[in-house]
């Protein structure tokens, strides 16, 4: 999974039917030191996160599993909110 911060939302009325009712969020990947790294991506939200929150997301086919039995076409989904990061 990957660390990121929620930086925006995407509104799309014309989209795959299975995406109806899903929240489309923009995430900026970050390092554990919360430095921005890499490019922003659009993800689905399986947890109900807020703007600016530090989150972690899952990639690939597995990222559609939170929505089973519905087959939701997503390749990146937020699966948790980060409370703390303990680095040595």
């Amino acid at each position: 999974m990957f660390l990121g911060r929620v930086v925006g939302t995407v509104v799309a009325t014309v989209k795959d039917a299975a995406l109806k009712g899903q929240r489309l969020l923009v995430v900026q990947p970050v390092t554990p030191e919360l430095k921005e790294t890499g490019k922003r991506i659009v993800v689905l939200d399986a947890v109900g996160v807020g703007a600016g929150e530090l989150i972690y997301w899952c990639r690939g086919k597995e990222s559609s599993f939170p929505f089973l039995p519905e087959e939701v076409p997503t390749d990146n989904t937020i699966v948790g909110v980060v409370d703390e990061l303990h680095l040595c």
Binding site: M1, P32, A46, V47, G48, V49, Y56, P66, V79, G80, V81, V82, D83, E84, L85, H86, L87, C88
Partner: peptide, 21 residues
């Protein structure tokens, strides 16, 4: 392994599993 992550609000399947950085 450089650290650990604590998360309470997460997908149910992640409960009870240690998340490492």
């Amino acid at each position: 392994v450089i650290g650990e992550m604590v998360s309470t609000e997460k997908h149910p399947s992640h409960v009870g599993r240690k998340a490492l950085v």
